[in-house]
Amino acid sequence: MIDQLQRIGRGALDRLAATGRSGQMLLQSLFVPPAPKEMLPLLIKQLHFVGVLSLVIILVSGLFIGMVLGLQGYTILVDYGSEQAVGQMVALSLVRELAPVVTALLFAGRAGSAVTAEIGLMKATEQLASYEMIGVDPMRRIIAPRLWAGFISLPILTMIFAVVGIWGGSLVAVDWLGIYSGSFWANMQASVDFSTDVLNGIVKSLVFGFVVIWISVFQGYDAIPTSEGISKATTRTVVYSSLAVLGLDFILTAMMFGEI
């Protein structure tokens, strides 16, 4: 009984300590004196790894999700004789919800887990410690570029996802199912508002990008430096990021569209 109580307490304290360490890592790596000359190449390398290499999965899933939305929307809306509203449905659901959330989930799986494994392995092979030994701050050289790269690239990927998805939806609805393209686009433009829909979607993706890359980098940085520890950390990255994205999505949606 007492043992169980102790276990609960220790678990809670461990979580709390980890949260504190992650905040400390974030502050130490974000608020470093900027040195564009040496940091920019590192950032570009990470942007390529985190952003450009995630492009293929984002393009393919965006296209298919848009096509499925077009098809499903059509089969439902045609019963009510309002199949012109497919454009509106595809665009609103993509821009507001699906693009930020699905991109963040894919990003956590594709880029976040890789970042965790990389940093975890660096720690296990004592590369981080050797950087410190030769007087290079690992926060600055390893952690900060990855954080910034994730934070910058996720909103870009989200916008690309939304555009490709809407194009996929129009491909199915207009070219395949024969909805008049004028009403498809006019309905969409009449109902999608730039500031409430598009900008809020981008704000969502900024928040998700921050959270996902923070979790990924911290799990790698905080991993137990064994092969088992790294595998656990990678799993935790995907699980925690997905849960955080889905939970935050509800809160953000409630704040943006729920008028709470």
Binding site: A91, V95, P155, I156, L157, M159, I160, A162, V163, I166, W185, M188, Q189, V192, D193, F194, D197, V198, I202
Partner: peptide
């Protein structure tokens, strides 16, 4: 990314 943002702004919204 920039092209997507412009597309979202002009063509979609």
């Amino acid at each position: 990314g920039v092209i997507s943002l412009v597309t979202l702004a002009i063509n979609v919204s």
